[in-house]
Nucleic acid binder design. Sequence first.
DNA 1: TGCCGATATGTTATATAGTAGCATATCTGC
DNA 2: GCAGATATGCTACTATATAACATATCGGCA
Lengths: 175, 175
Amino acid sequence: MQLTVFPAPTSPTANLDHGHDHGGCRTKALQTAEQLCNNRGVRLTPMRRQVLELIWESHRAIKAYDLLDRIKPTTGTAKPATVYRALDFLLEQGLIHKVESLNAFIGCSFSDHQHQQLLLTCIRCLEVEERPAAGVMEAIDRELEQAAFIIHHKAIEIHGICIRCAKHPPITATI
Amino acid sequence: MQLTVFPAPTSPTANLDHGHDHGGCRTKALQTAEQLCNNRGVRLTPMRRQVLELIWESHRAIKAYDLLDRIKPTTGTAKPATVYRALDFLLEQGLIHKVESLNAFIGCSFSDHQHQQLLLTCIRCLEVEERPAAGVMEAIDRELEQAAFIIHHKAIEIHGICIRCAKHPPITATI
DNA sequence: TGCCGATATGTTATATAGTAGCATATCTGC
DNA sequence: GCAGATATGCTACTATATAACATATCGGCA
Ligand SMILES: [Zn+2]
Ligand SMILES: [Zn+2]
Ligand SMILES: [Zn+2]
Ligand SMILES: [Zn+2]
C-alpha cells in the first residue's frame, strides 16, 4: 500500500510559514488595516479585528466556519452571522479576498492601493499567493473590449503546485 | 420611490434567447455530447442526458437544486446525490462548466475540442458567455512561468453587463 | 451628563449547497 | 442466464450562507 504524507504546512512552534517570518506579514497587515479604517472613518471593531487576525494567521485560505470555531466571543459562542458580517466588512474595505473556488478567505496583500489580482492556490500546502499580474489584467481588458462587456468584478483563480512544494516533494512511504 | 424592472431574460413562448434561435445551440450541444460519449466509450445515460438538456435550456447558469426541482425521475422525486452525480460526469467529460462564483453550471460551448475559457456573467440577464480568449491564456501562462507555479486548473470569471443588456437598458418606473 | 439616532452585535431560525454510505437496479461481456 | 462493473435510489448528514428581529454600543449634541 502506498501512503502519501505531505509535510505540515506550518511549523507548530513559530510564526514561520514556508520559511519566512510570517509575524511580519500579519503585523503589517493589521497596521495597514487600522490606518485605512481610520482614514476612511469606518470602525475596525474588536470583532472585525479578531477575524482579520485569524485570517492572517497563515497564507492559507480559511473557511467561515473554521473562523467561527476560533472566535473567542466575550460571552457565549459566536454564531454564523457574526463572522459573515465581519467578513462582509473586510471584503468591502478590500482587506481580504474571497477565494470563490474554495469558499474561503485570505488576507489581501495589497490593501493599501487599488489592484486586481490572480489568486494562486497550492493544492499541497494550501497557501494562496496574490499576484497583481498586470499583463494578465491588460489582456483581459482587451478581451472584454472586444466582447463589449462592462466589467463589475473579476475572479481569477488558479489551482496547482507552488514552487516551494515542487522543490520539496511530499514524503512517500510504503507500508 | 424608484423601482427598477429588468426585461425578462427569455421569451416565455419560444426558444428565442436574447434574439437567437437557441434550439439550435441545444440540439448541437446534445448531438456533440452523444458523439463524444460514444467515441470515449462512456455512457450518456437518460439521467445524465436529461440534466445536460436542462442545463442547455438557456445560456443562464443553473444551480444544482434548481436542476433537482426540474428533473422528472421515472419514479418518485430526485435526490441531491442524483443530480450531483450527473453533474460530476458532465464536468469530467468537459460537457459543462461550473461557475464557481455562482455555485451554478453552464453547458460548454466548445466541448468538441480542448480549450480554456473566460466566463462572462451578465448581472442583468444572468447569461454566461464562454470565450476562449487565447491572449488572456497566454498572459496567464507567462505569469505562472514567472511564479514557477505548475497549473492544474483555472477559473477565470468576470461579472458585469453584457452588450445586449447595455443596449437595452432596464425599464425604470416611478411610483 | 444624559438622550437620540446610527451602527454593530447577539440570537433564533431557516435557506442553500454538497457528501457519505449502503441498497438496488441496470448494463456488458462471457 | 450469470457475474462483475457501473449507475441510480435512498437515508442521513455535513457544510455554507442569509433573514429577521432583539439588544448593545458608539458618537454627536441638547
Ligand atoms: Zn507571510
Ligand atoms: Zn488584494
Ligand atoms: Zn443559444
Ligand atoms: Zn467550455
